[in-house]
Amino acid sequence: MTIHWIRFILGTICLLFGLFFLVSAVIGNFRFKFALNRMHSAALGDTLGILGVILGICFYHGLNVTTVKLLIVVALVWITSPVASHLIMLMEMTVGRSTAESGGEQSDEQGFERGTVEMRRRALADIKKEEEEK
């Protein structure tokens, strides 16, 4: 019975540790402003949060085949989470609308694509402006 109490206390400590990190990941996701900052808090929940929760479940469950599978889940998430973060970073750098000066606003430059009428009007306006400058 004593070993059961020790397992319960250790598992509860690990579970609360993991839940603390998961909740702080959510709070960070709400408080940060840009996606590259949010990736930091998401990675916190992905590594320490899931490790704490799964270690707590392992202590509750005892040594089993299921425990090995739980640790396989931890290994899988630890392998795939940096790759996912890298892909999100790659997308953010390629699309490139997340810098601080743009403030998350998408620049509206596709006014060109409104048919030939718009194009003619713009071309004539450009020519007139150049002539006035002369």
Partner: peptide, 12 residues
């Protein structure tokens, strides 16, 4: 506001 924020949320 943008696609990358949403993808971070989906990951979480």
């Amino acid at each position: 506001p943008r696609m990358s924020d949403r993808i971070v949320g989906v990951n979480m």
